[in-house]
């Protein structure tokens, strides 16, 4: 009987959302506090990786994003949270101009990468996407071998030599913590991998073109808890080299791994703060309500 009620309430299996600052598990609280010193509210100009100024996105008449200003710092993980339809994925997709592929979408404002405005018509989006990589919610490996999945992009970005390509593939797989699991079967189909492995393959694929910024759209939403843990561990490792921006529905995940968190609601940025602050002492009542599970 107790089992049943636990399953129904979701406590026994997993907690779908952050259960409020007061209900945070002890370990997580400690971790948040520990990281508090490492994340100052504002960093130096030279630490800025990418930022948006007054970014608006329209889908036809629908005003999906209303003037977003966020500064992302190098070697940090920034989490974008908010209820479904709040615009966080739209925002993420606008950072590497993936919204260009939607005919009705229109983006105004500025996206600055190393002082370069990416949201200009004369920007080569193909070159830009090489600098700003992206990983999607559901693992989407190509119908090719593991090796060919990684080599796909470097090939058309100009690497032709077999030995160089081999090195690129190995390095990407190592960085995605997948090398040891697949090194003996590089030429087998990528579909033979488990869901978690496929997702790490997709991360490796994005890393193979040496991006500065890595965007991840709920990368663990379709994975089991163990695979999720591996991905999170990987992201913490990757931030040493890259700037990581992650959209997540899982507020525990945001609290566990991110340095800063942006809370979106109805197309607006409600609050952007270091994660420990946003989760324990938010500036806005709406943020407090959301992270403590009162709406969303």
């Amino acid at each position: 009987m107790d089992c049943v009620s636990e399953v129904l309430s979701g406590e026994a299996t997993h907690q779908p959302r952050w259960f409020g600052s007061l209900g945070a598990p002890q370990a997580l609280q400690e971790r948040l506090a520990e990281r508090a010193q490492d994340v100052p509210a504002v960093k130096a100009e030279t630490d800025v990786a990418i930022e948006t100024r007054d970014l608006h996105v329209y889908y036809g008449k629908n005003h999906a994003l209303k003037g977003i200003n966020i500064t992302f710092y190098k070697n940090e993980i920034t989490a974008l949270i908010g209820p479904s339809g709040c615009g966080k994925s739209t925002y993420l997709r606008s950072l590497n101009r993936m919204n260009d592929t939607i005919p009705t979408a229109k983006t105004t404002g500025h996206i600055l990468l190393n002082g370069e405005d990416l949201n200009r018509p004369d920007i080569d989006v193909w070159a830009l996407r090489k600098r700003v990589g992206m990983v999607f919610q559901r693992p989407n490996p190509f119908n090719k071998s593991i090796y060919e999945n990684i080599a796909f992009a470097p090939r058309f970005h100009g690497i032709k030599k077999k030995s160089t390509l081999d090195d690129v593939v190995e390095e990407a797989l190592r960085r995605a913590a997948l090398w040891d699991e697949v090194k003996d079967r590089l030429h087998e189909s990528a579909f033979a991998l488990s869901g978690g492995q496929q997702q790490r393959l997709c991360i490796a694929r994005a890393l193979a073109i040496e991006p500065d910024v890595l965007l991840l759209d709920e990368p663990a939403a379709a994975l089991d808890p163990i695979s999720t843990a591996k991905i999170e561990e990987l992201l913490l490792d990757l931030k040493k080299r890259y700037t990581v921006i992650i959209v997540t529905h899982n507020m525990q995940q945001a609290a566990r791994i991110s340095d800063r968190t942006a809370f979106f609601y109805e197309g607006e940025l409600i609050e952007y703060n270091p994660t420990h602050k946003l989760f324990t002492n938010p500036d806005k009542q709406a943020t407090e309500d959301y992270v403590s599970g009162r709406f969303g």
Partner: peptide, 13 residues
């Protein structure tokens, strides 16, 4: 699937 195409575009293809 459109996801495969999106994956390719996201790699700068």
């Amino acid at each position: 699937s459109p996801e495969i195409k999106a994956g390719s575009y996201a790699l700068g293809a």
